[in-house]
């Protein structure tokens, strides 16, 4: 017997496909915001993470420079850095959106960090968030609260 690294892919996640809960999307100028979601919080969990896919369908670069929410004391833009087996969470100033490109906010990568949640997030809840883009401006979206297994689908949802 040997301990070894399992380098298998994650076919189950990739094949997750669209979900019954349905996807939702928003558009602000050239920016498309695809299926913003978050997880239901565990008891006592005072922070939450918002995920989504941002698509820039325009010819000009833009940046997500901030977010606000009535559901938490503040919202920051964060990323995870994986250094070997250590995970670090760090604030980022902005998330760049190149023309004709998509950026995913997803588990293990970028997220909106909701700090100081005013109430627990239950499954199925819709959490209001305002996204602030440098050029496109502000847009109100809702994070759909859903469990992780169901939430891997946004990756699939991009092609339409």
């Amino acid at each position: 017997m040997s301990w070894r690294i399992h380098a298998f892919g994650l076919p189950a996640l990739v094949l997750a496909g669209a979900i019954a809960a349905g996807a939702h999307e928003y558009k602000l100028g050239a920016i498309e915001i695809d299926h913003p979601w978050t997880r239901p919080t565990a008891t006592g969990q005072q922070v939450g993470a918002g995920f989504m896919t941002l698509k820039n369908t325009g010819t000009e670069a833009d940046r997500l420079i901030g977010a606000e929410s009535a559901a938490s004391e503040k919202v920051e833009l964060h990323e995870h850095i994986h250094e070997g087996d250590v995970v670090k969470m760090r604030p980022v100033e902005a998330i760049a959106l190149a023309p004709q490109a998509a950026v995913k906010l997803e588990p293990g990568g970028y997220h909106l960090m909701l700090i100081g949640l005013k109430a627990p997030i239950s499954e199925g809840a819709m959490i209001p968030v305002t996204l602030i883009f440098e050029k496109a401006g502000r847009v109100d979206v809702e994070l759909m609260s859903q469990k992780q297994g169901e939430a891997h689908k946004p990756a699939e949802h991009m092609g339409h």
Binding site: Q46, A49, H80, V87, P107, G108, Q148
Partner: peptide, 13 residues
């Protein structure tokens, strides 16, 4: 730790 919105819930799941 519990002040962890992503990695720890994923792990616990």
């Amino acid at each position: 730790f519990t002040f962890c919105p992503d990695i720890c819930p994923t792990k616990l799941d």
